[in-house]
Design a protein around this nucleic acid. Sequence first.
DNA 1: TTGTAGGCGTTATCAG
DNA 2: CTGATAACGCCTACAA
Lengths: 334, 334
Amino acid sequence: MATIYDVSVLAGVSLATVSRVINKNGNVSEKTAKKVLAAMEQLGYRPNAIAQSLASNRSNSVGILIPELCGPFFGNLMSGAEKRLRDANKHVIITAGHSKEESEKAGIDFLLSRNCDALILHLDALSDEYLVELSKRGIPIVVINRFVPSLQENCIYLDNMTGGYQATKEMIAQGHRDIAYIAGPDWKEDAKARFEGHKKALQEANIDFIPELIYKGDFKQESGSDGLKHLLSKAIEFTALVCANDEMASGAMAFAREHDIGLPDAISIIGFDNIVYSSYLFPALTTINYPVEEMAKMAAALILKEVYQVKGLKITNEFYPSLVRRQSVATLKN
Amino acid sequence: MATIYDVSVLAGVSLATVSRVINKNGNVSEKTAKKVLAAMEQLGYRPNAIAQSLASNRSNSVGILIPELCGPFFGNLMSGAEKRLRDANKHVIITAGHSKEESEKAGIDFLLSRNCDALILHLDALSDEYLVELSKRGIPIVVINRFVPSLQENCIYLDNMTGGYQATKEMIAQGHRDIAYIAGPDWKEDAKARFEGHKKALQEANIDFIPELIYKGDFKQESGSDGLKHLLSKAIEFTALVCANDEMASGAMAFAREHDIGLPDAISIIGFDNIVYSSYLFPALTTINYPVEEMAKMAAALILKEVYQVKGLKITNEFYPSLVRRQSVATLKN
DNA sequence: TTGTAGGCGTTATCAG
DNA sequence: CTGATAACGCCTACAA
């Protein structure tokens, strides 16, 4: 691989001059610039980003840490951030945290060791304190789907509680009063908030909260099937099922179908997230929209603004969920 | 951030010695090693991967280039490779090529400029020649889902033609003879091969190939709906629809549902890929399994073996598709 | 406008 | 077993 040195020799100028034309800073006469460009072309020269990064302490890359690399939700997250950053000629380095503290720490270390200029984090296990600590170390971070009080400005989050509220409220609006709930893991903040919203909606409608109608899943499809199975095994009847995310909802739907439970007539189901295939389920899943892609783009914009000094960017930290009505919720006739 | 120099001072040894204990190479007495370790601990020292990479010409990271960061197929691809590599303490740097030549080139350049030790590529636009050229430049590459004759050893590919054949053959086996086909873009090798398989199956069963029963889609859901709509608008009847991938199949299914076309009775549908939610569609989609995740793991294994000299790894270059029977194909009664 | 030289944090080759 | 010291490829004052 040709280096800046080779170029300088071929062009008959100094290293510094070549560097100047590469970075378009400093003043270089048009004539020499042309010579250098020609030499670069001829040698097929590509700047070594590693060396640039070491020398300038800038890498033009931002690190992204998410729990998993697969799955519709995180796919959109990555994709949104990457698009926005690519437009600004920045790059992303992505790694998975696998929802485990050690693993998330390791992921962050990896990103830092790569000299990322900033980090976009979707964490499950790491504590707020750790984030605050990290932030103090000087590396700009933006946290997605989490509200850390002392890091407000750096958080891009959804009002999960309102989303949970909307979901259950929709069931109530359609005449349901016996409502089961498949929750996410209670150590995840978003799962907790959604569940709070559910309870709030019940309370507002003067519906008793019945612990037997709750199943604790893990946000994965299978726990949706398991959940519905478990709930049906109890003697308590219900006409509606609220799921803390779409993946569990799809699992529950699959279980229902296998057991000839008519949807949405026997059980109305609602999900959360509005993942890409929710409209392709049968019946098409009514759900709460989670604008991840936009939020990821906003996270990117925040970094562009704060770290790369791009002007004219409006930042919104809080996003709102919204009900997406499709066919999986039936109106209950008395 | 503490550097190796700070550590050496605190431990009262030389730079070289610290480097030795970091890399566990060279001989260091247990006593000095302990001192160094203590100093590292005390300073919270983390090696700077960038500097290591520059000095050693090794980055312990492998680059992955895929068309899109979202979508079920590529999600599994990333995820498979990342898992395998992470187990071996290597990291991945992922970027998107967006199926455009310029963009794919830029992606590769980015990965190279990051000093990746090897590349895993899923390309759409770039030519075989470019790959051969790239390979000659000295960077180890492995190509997924593509067979490049002169790079055989570095290709991990699926027998797409057989897959396409299996799909249509299953339809024929279930008594169908009027079979429509929604193809992928004809500039994608895999789409072409699948289509070839389709034609081969028809021919084998002495079924005339009817151009009007073909629609050319783009592998996205919407083109599945469009495709079915288009096919139905023709006067030619058909009882079966073969789709070149699951996403288009799900689009077609959605269209059918909206127009009260009974599935699978009025039209039997089969897909290709066996993406994660295909079993959650209604009716559950019969499809051809594409073991992407395993293939990605194999790609990673190949790199571990060739680039990082990991021993005892068996490499398989060609993978085979297989039929996954679910509910979307009905047996045709005469 | 251009060149010189020191430095970014490590690794690796020599001697000792 | 340990310590100098020269790379690695580039950036950036500072000088000229």
